[in-house]
Design a protein around this nucleic acid. Structure first.
Lengths: 236, 236
DNA sequence: TTTTTTAATATTGTCAGACAATGTTTGGCG
DNA sequence: CGCCAAACATTGTCTGACAATATTAAAAAA
């Protein structure tokens, strides 16, 4: 069949506002805009960039949500964080190894704090998460909802909202990424998961009995084991 | 069929697209939308929500940037991450204590890795950062550019991009937040900063001489001292 | 009937223009 | 100089339009 012209090299599949938001950012960088500086008006930007004002507004919304700009009614958009690009935290696709290594730094501490601050309800929820994990395992599912829930519950029980957010971000990244699903399939899942369940139980035990050091160690051991399995998978 | 219009109270100070994006999200949650489900069309949403299509589009852009939706040309928007709310990572304003505690988890490890992987150029840059810090200190500036640069350079030198991103995010948050500037003014800055400079030098020394354990310990000690000063400030 | 081709439809992408609301500036006045 | 009202600039939102194209329904062919 007549496959018509292949889409222009100019990646027309990308929506305009994305290109425009990049252009705006580049413009701000090139012209040495600093935090607090006001952007040109929307109409001016639309003229300069050759797009409609509606498109400029979409781009500005994107930059606002990304934390680059702060928009004030009837005043304009002012620069907030040009370099930082906080949103990259969400978008980066870090390798599994890097992820695990950061987890090894954060999660044992979360477990330690959880052992100090946990409520009984939280313990119960953790127990349910382990049960869910067992269920998924037995049913042969490829999901890891129970696994994730367990770790997230501990993070939340730590009482440090920042720590909790970071751990949550790590798991979101894993869930969202493209590398993990492959990895998961290539591992001997059932054996690994059975081990993981027991390790989780040991962590929970320490948390329930209010043993911070034990909880931290159990979690560290669990993550060591995860890392080892990762290494084995990559090399095998 | 009668399309029932949803009406929400409008805080006139908030732009419409924000309310609409929240409404859309709420709508998706209440109607049990799952990952992969398609949203109603823009025109339909605009009718239901009682706003123009342009506003709906702005809201959709916001949700797309936040990682909640994925928009496909001529098809519509599909759900990506309803619960996750990845963007919360950017918006949280964690307390100074929580920040320092997370730094204590991440930065010693970054220093350890930096001692293993650093290049000579990076060492030189760290030295410049310390010099900048001395200069700011002597001039009585309230800035902490040199301080931040030093920590960020170590993070980058660690070679773990994820770790580096997280540490960077921590400092961005500190910079962006509202609590830190006050704190800074209420502390005996000159004494504290002189101490910090010496501690930085000790860290750099260990990194230069390729002593991972020493670097980690020096960094940990530095952060302990930061935390102590924080406690003193709050209680004083 | 089943498959292929074609036409109709729905939906997004983008634009232009309009108007209200309101912060900012400016010029006059004491 | 300081104060106040009018002119101005800028954003916020709406309406309507049209092109491009994925999806679906209908028609034609096998």
């Amino acid at each position: 069949m007549g496959v018509k012209a292949i889409q222009t090299v100019n990646d027309k599949n990308e929506r305009l506002y994305i290109r425009v938001s990049q252009d705006i950012k580049k413009y701000l960088l090139e012209n040495n805009f600093l935090e607090g500086d006001r952007l040109p008006s929307e109409t001016e930007l639309s003229k300069v960039l050759g797009v409609s004002r509606a498109t400029v507004r979409e781009a500005i919304v994107a930059l606002e949500v990304s934390g680059v700009l702060d928009v004030r009614r009837n005043v304009g958009a002012v620069v907030l964080n040009l370099g930082g690009d906080l949103h990259s935290l969400v978008n980066i696709e870090a390798g599994p190894f890097e992820q695990v290594r950061v987890r090894k730094l954060l999660e044992p501490e979360a477990a330690r704090l959880a052992a100090e601050n946990r409520t009984d309800e939280q313990c119960q929820a953790m127990e349910s998460a382990i049960e869910m994990m067992v269920g998924e395992n037995r049913a042969g599912f490829e999901t890891e909802e129970g696994d994730m829930q367990f770790h997230l519950l501990i993070a939340k029980a730590s009482g440090n909202s920042l720590l909790s957010s970071y751990i949550e971000g790590l798991w979101e990244m894993r869930h969202h990424g493209k590398l993990w699903p492959q990895l998961q399939r290539s591992v001997d899942i059932s054996a690994m998961r059975t081990r993981a369940v027991f390790q989780h139980m040991r962590v929970l035990e320490a948390i329930k009995s209010g043993n911070p050091e034990g909880a931290a160690q159990a979690m560290a051991k669990h993550l060591d084991s995860v890392e080892e399995e990762l290494e084995g998978t990559i090399q095998g």
